[in-house]
Design a protein around this nucleic acid. Sequence first.
DNA 1: AACACCCCCTGTCGGC
DNA 2: TGCCGACAGGGGGTGT
Length: 278
Amino acid sequence: MPELPEVEYERKRLQRAMAGARIRDVILRRANLRYAFPSDFVRRLAGQRVRGVARRAKYLLAELGSGDVLLMHLGMSGSFRVVHRNTRERVPDEGRYNLHDHVIFEVSTGAIVVFNDPRRFGFMTLLAPGEVDTHATLGRLGPEPLAPRFDASALAKELRQRRTTLKAALLDQRVIAGLGNIYVCEALHRARLSPLRRASTLTTQAGEPRPALNLLVQAIREVLKEAIRNQNRPGGDDDRFRVYDREGRRCPRRGCGGTITRIVQGGRSTFYCPVCQS
DNA sequence: AACACCCCCTGTCGGC
DNA sequence: TGCCGACAGGGGGTGT
């Protein structure tokens, strides 16, 4: 599931469960997820205090007392669950975990944090102090869409030279960090922009944002903020999205009357309304 | 640079 | 009912 709003949700839960507390122990129930765990993974985590849990794009970063950073990615199917147990109780039996519970953190508060990831596209690793800044992928990430410094001018600089489609450009984490397939579709619909439009056409020759780009920036912010705001409430799973996974339905825009269409771009589904998105 | 294609892995869903 | 392919919200790699 996890795009920026979902990762932010997991961050808050981890922050509540772990911040200020100590990691008593870590149980790895397999040697790898997407990548192998570092051989000293457990040793470097055990006994460490968690200063806080931060998010960058779709990455989670738990800062430890040692200065190490626990870097985590949820991949396509990763999620955490937090079990609160009486601290006097014994460590749970192996048998109480599910098939895809791969990593278990036992926290000094008595909370037990379980990472579950059926597809195992997620990963965890440890970065020494300083490695956060030099990390290949983290270093190349584009701006956070919810950060104040992110605006139409910033996005214009990235899109100006791109001859690729808007859909592909917005999915590129170097252009803007944290959007995924769903929220790109949703933001483009809100901004009434075609996913097939060339990215560079939202800027002037000089690289200044055209009016449509201002609308897009606003749409991206709104879509993400709404998703973050709504994720506590029980899922009206059906009307959560306006276009995503709604092929064949009526466009929800008042007076549009178009039909949501599915196309494939870069091997991934795009949902949009060909009538009001141009 | 950008594209098209491949991979990683498991689960689910629709069609037959 | 079972089988089988298509597809899934992630990223990364290749070759053209």
